[in-house]
Design a protein around this nucleic acid. Structure first.
Lengths: 339, 339
DNA sequence: CTGAAAGCGCTAACAT
DNA sequence: ATGTTAGCGCTTTCAG
């Protein structure tokens, strides 16, 4: 168990000073080629790793981006993270991933830790519980670049990368209408989260545009988990006049509906059509495969990171907060196309 | 954009010194109750967050555990991470999550970053590509606690938390035999990863114990992805004498097999039985639901973290490396039970 | 019970 | 092209 080697150790070995080592390692223009080579070679030989704590303390922050997501085992979020990691790596930054399990308390805690550890920026998709954004004030006060993605804060003065959820939902519902479905139900999420509110609006818009009557009893709000989908579907089926299609704001609740319909022996897509949201991996793998809306997680992640790098590269801090909206894509599968 | 408040700021406000503030915040016994209260209250009021970089530099490491996994969007790994996070939180530690996408290069990179950033310990499940463990030498040389889990290094002098993959596989295959299947194929992973080697051995042991002939042509090695499962299943079905069951070392390749069989109109479980491995969420959600082996990710994570805390709490460093083996559980579902 | 002072390893102005 | 020096914010010995 040896001590780690520092730039002082390298300096001593080469009869020079820490400054020179530091500069050589950073490829500073004022250092001679020969010296750079000597330093780099020795560093490799001695297995030198920079002490990020010391460097970070010195320059006031670490070359790290914090990403906060509700859960890491969702395909959408893991794609976003992969996108962020790509961009970060290209720019020599590290990514620290935090999951909140949809709890505000965890969100707060992670935020504090990230601030404590001197991250250069924070990318966040807020949790289901989060309907108040005070805890982000400190981040902004400290001038740490803050970028929201997917589930975004309602404040206007922050950077946001969003999906056009309204358009995605609209496409989904129009697709159902085009396939001859007449009474389309909707599994909605909590209204205070932009994504669910927008998906509901897209649904309503489509019905209006096609002169289909909106029926409140066909709109069911829940936590959108598998079990809720099952329960909601049961509730719909037991209606005196049940719907012939469902547009769910989540693939998970759509899956619950499919499972319930399968148990009941109701044919999907011929008796009832189903469309989900998010294009989770499993949507392609189940039977019938589930039509869903792809949100391009990877691109969202890359954009979020891109906005971060623009923020830190802008010396004049003249950038005004931007909102980038990406158009989602409807992936048509078996669950919504009648034979 | 104000500067962050430091313990000096607090000290000035209370007409005392940084030492006192530092001690008060850490609940040092030598500080008076009244002083502690004053300090804690002011810290809260001023929104003080410790500078983890400075603290870390001072004490030579940060209160952080690094976790390296192949991918974060696998249910097993995300459960492990949740387990680690639980234990870490209870002990005031943070967790940084790194994913390698099964690439050794990424594994190296993350390892270096974690060392650089002064993590107190590293928990790792190695990637598919990793068949050499030199890059972990530096971690050990520096005396950083290193704990392998699930996919572990072959070295003997490291801490390991493993599943008893041999036993899990054995249970799975015996279950198939009990259900009347006679010719059981196996989708195997690369032999240099302990988990796949052990699963194969469990498969072979079960066949031997029940006097079933081992046929090399029924053992197919692949990367165990969905597509490989499909291809392997096709290969098996086209055999002059095809098997009547498959034990797959991965749920993903098992899924590929199910999809192919469905396309071919072959009935599962009546014509062919299928068992997967890892108990991914989707196994319960597809039709037919997939029998699989549950590896208790959460417990693995908690154990790994527990071993880490034991390591750092042992002043004499007298602890010898341990191997903890957990017994997995067979979850019987529709894909392997003939009607 | 509290204070003074040193130093963790690195960076970057300011020399030379 | 390289060296000198100060200091980032914290912890901790040693002193009182």
């Amino acid at each position: 168990m040896k001590k780690r080697v520092t730039i002082q150790d390298l300096a001593k070995e080469l009869n020079t000073t820490p400054s020179t080592i530091s500069r050589a390692l950073k490829n500073h223009p004022a250092i001679s080629k020969s010296m750079k080579k000597k330093v780099v070679d020795l560093a490799k030989e001695r297995n030198y790793q920079i002490n990020a704590l010391a460097a970070g303390l010195r320059i006031g922050k670490s070359k790290t981006i914090g990403v906060i997501v509700p859960r890491i085992n969702r395909d959408f979020f893991s794609n976003v993270i992969a996108g962020v990691e790509d961009m970060a790596f290209e720019n020599g930054y590290n990514v620290v991933i935090c999951q909140t399990h949809d709890k505000v308390a965890k969100e707060r805690q992670h935020l504090n830790t990230l601030i404590s550890s001197g991250v250069s920026g924070i990318l966040v998709s807020v949790g289901l519980e989060t309907n108040n954004f005070d805890h982000f004030d400190e981040v902004k006060r400290l001038g740490i670049p803050l970028i929201f993605f997917d589930r975004v804060a309602e404040q206007s003065d922050v950077n946001k990368i969003q999906n056009n959820d309204k358009a995605g939902a609209y496409k989904a519902v129009v697709h159902l209408i085009d396939n001859g479905y007449k009474r389309i139900a909707h599994f909605a999420g909590p209204d205070y989260l932009n994504v669910y509110k927008d998906r509901k609006e897209g649904y309503l818009d489509a019905l209006r545009d096609y002169n289909i009557e909106i029926e409140e009893e066909l709109i069911i709000e829940s936590d959108l988990k598998v079990e809720s989908g099952r329960v909601s579907m049961k509730q719909l089926i037991e209606l005196p006049n049940p719907p012939d299609a469902v547009f769910s704001a989540s693939d998970y609740s759509a899956l619950g509906a499919l499972l319930y319909l399968d148990e009941m022996g109701i044919d999907v897509p011929n008796q009832i059509g189903v469309v989900g949201y998010s294009n989770e991996n499993f949507t392609a793998l189940i039977s019938p495969s589930l039509t869903s809306v792809n949100q391009h997680g990877m691109e969202i992640g890359r954009y979020a990171a891109k906005v971060f790098f623009e923020e830190i590269n802008d010396q004049q801090k003249s950038l005004i907060p931007r909102t980038i909206v990406l158009d989602p894509e409807l992936i048509i599968r078996a669950s919504s196309v009648r034979k």
